[in-house]
Amino acid sequence: MNLFVLLTLLQDGLTTGAIYLLLAVGLLIVFSVTRVIFVPQGDLLALAALTVAQLEAGSVPGTLWLLDALAVLAVLADLLAGSRWRALRWLPVPALVTLATLFGPRAAAWYAMPLGLAIITPFGPLLWRLVFRRAAGATMLTLLILAMALHFVLEGAGMVLFGPDGAATAPLTEAAFAVGPLTLSGQSLAVVGLCAALVALLRWFFGATIEGKALRAAASDRLGARLVGIDAARSGGLAFALAAFVAALSGVLIAALTPIGYDTGFAIGLKGFVAAIVGGLVSYPAAAAGAVLVGVLESLGSFWASAYRDVIVYALLVPVLLLLSWRGRRAGEET
């Protein structure tokens, strides 16, 4: 392996690692606030990519109708749960997005991408309302199984709505830069740059805004947060919205680099989970290190022995887990 190869592999690993990091951040937000491991995040990633590709082709994506249907279901669920006018709060955003899709210049690339994000992001709070809120008091394992089941539902929906073939979206930039022997694609740089920017933005959000602080409070002490008037339901919805947004953005970014199919998302989401776990489900910098680690390991593993890549990546993960678990136990020992 020469330097050129090594650098190319690192660049490759870094790009995928950046996507894993985005997903890890989404998982961390949702987990810390609601204890749900949001497995279906990967499916939202795929749905976002397919949605934007379809918008760029000029047609109305099926996810739009799915969104509207979920919104109506959420209203019904709220009504059944005894709430009255407040139940209607699920409607404005989907209605607005629907209008923007039907009457906007949806095929234009500058319009399709933000529109795609706007279609997928509300899935977060809606799915949270319909699937997870009812089970808020269940064991962590039950919540995990619910998340798994939701993954299969969304994956199936992706196939029905978009068919089994993958799709690619227009890249943000076609530019390419020569750095020594390497050719860096503008899109890869954009992915890494946007991921960094988004993580910085989230830091700011959690550090400086009222909503962000409320989320952090809800994450660190659920009961306490409720006592000071932070609405647990609201913070849950917000966390899921953030996660869905992050997933959608990842999907749109990555679909310009590689075709994304309805079933591509799960594997990507799993790697995000790996990164989040390496971050101990609490620490963002550690999750970032984990994300890059997984991305680079994959790249190197593919080079050394592509057929055994998964074995290599996951076998190398085990000592890391062991170390983390030991450290975690030391720090958080029950007494």
């Binding site: 491991i37 996951y314 085990v318 887990l321 678990s325 975690g328």
Partner: peptide, 14 residues
């Protein structure tokens, strides 16, 4: 020696 989600992920790995 693993607990909680570390164990879950480890089992996914194997």
């Amino acid at each position: 020696r693993l607990s909680g989600h570390f164990l879950a992920l480890c089992s996914v790995a194997w």
